[in-house]
Amino acid sequence: MVRVRVRQHVNPLAQKYQSVPQPLEWDKIFAQPHQPLHLDIGCARGRFVLQMAAIEPTWNFLGLEIREPLVIDANRVRDEQGLTNLHYVFCNANNSLKNLLKNLPQDTLQRVTIQFPDPWFKTRHGKRRIVQPQLIQEIAEYLIPGGMVFLQSDIEFVQQEMCDRFTENPAFLRENQQWLAQNPFPVPTEREIATLNKGEPVYRTIFRRVTS
């Protein structure tokens, strides 16, 4: 199989990433569309949700990724493994999330993960970072009361900025004031494994959707 070289970073503000996909047809992408949904934003190659879908068949998993070749390959691997509770979508989550989830079965979105997002180190590139106030508000509209948002990064200022922005939204409450020592999920991401193998820290936080 020929491996396609995929850019590690893409500018989400570029014109080519401004198109918005159609709302998802949940009964076509999942065998059991009313199962609890785990949304992974910025899933990269999708190996985290691939493994999670295999070990948690009573959950559905949706991975969003802005690099289309990675999504094509991830859906190919899903099909090879015969997983009917997993789907990947090529999109820019910052302008697509609300439309994608428009017809989501009620009270199914229960977990959201944003893991090791592109840090965009330069201050002038801050608007390119994935966690923006509008995205947080859209997550709040669909996540069930008590639902989890799990954030992690190997860059402390990125993690702190994500935490600050979720804290600013009254729909969310931070569960742990200190960085979590352990990942609450049984599957680490590829970036997480690489970071820990280098002996470097990972910064983790859980937020909960406030109960109305």
Rank of each mutant, 00 (worst) to 15 (best):
V6L: 12
Q8R: 15
H9Y: 15
V10M: 14
P12W: 13
P12I: 02
L13Q: 15
A14S: 14
A14R: 11
Q15G: 04
K16R: 15
Y17K: 05
Q18W: 08
V20S: 12
P21R: 13
Q22A: 15
P23V: 06
E25N: 11
I29H: 06
H34M: 11
Q35C: 06
P36E: 14
D40K: 01
I41C: 01
I41G: 08
I41D: 03
G42K: 12
G42T: 03
F48D: 05
F48K: 07
Q51R: 08
A54C: 03
I55D: 00
P57D: 08
W59K: 03
L64A: 00
L64F: 06
L64Y: 01
I66E: 02
I66M: 01
R67F: 06
P69Y: 11
L70R: 14
V71I: 03
D73R: 14
A74L: 02
N75C: 09
R78T: 06
E80G: 14
Q81N: 12
Q81G: 05
Q81S: 08
N85I: 04
N85Y: 04
N85W: 03
N85P: 04
Y88T: 02
F90P: 06
C91F: 01
N92A: 13
S96D: 02
L97A: 05
K102N: 11
L104A: 06
P105W: 12
Q115D: 00
P117A: 05
W120P: 02
F121W: 13
K122A: 09
R124L: 07
K127P: 02
K127M: 10
R128S: 07
R128E: 05
R128Y: 12
Q132Y: 02
L135F: 07
I136E: 06
I139G: 00
I139T: 01
L143T: 04
P145D: 11
P145V: 01
P145Y: 10
P145C: 10
M148S: 04
M148V: 09
S153N: 11
S153K: 03
I155E: 12
E156L: 13
F157Y: 14
F157K: 10
V158S: 14
V158I: 10
Q159D: 13
Q160H: 12
E161S: 14
E161M: 14
M162W: 11
F166A: 02
F166N: 04
T167E: 15
T167D: 15
E168Y: 04
E168M: 15
N169H: 05
P170C: 08
A171C: 11
A171F: 11
L173R: 13
R174N: 03
N176I: 00
Q177H: 13
W179Q: 09
N183M: 10
N183W: 09
P184K: 12
F185K: 10
F185R: 07
P186N: 09
E190W: 00
E190P: 01
R191W: 13
A194T: 08
T195C: 11
L196T: 07
L196N: 00
N197C: 08
K198W: 03
G199Y: 14
E200R: 08
P201G: 11
V202Y: 10
V202E: 13
R204S: 08
I206M: 13
F207N: 10
R208M: 05
V210C: 09
S212V: 06
S212I: 04
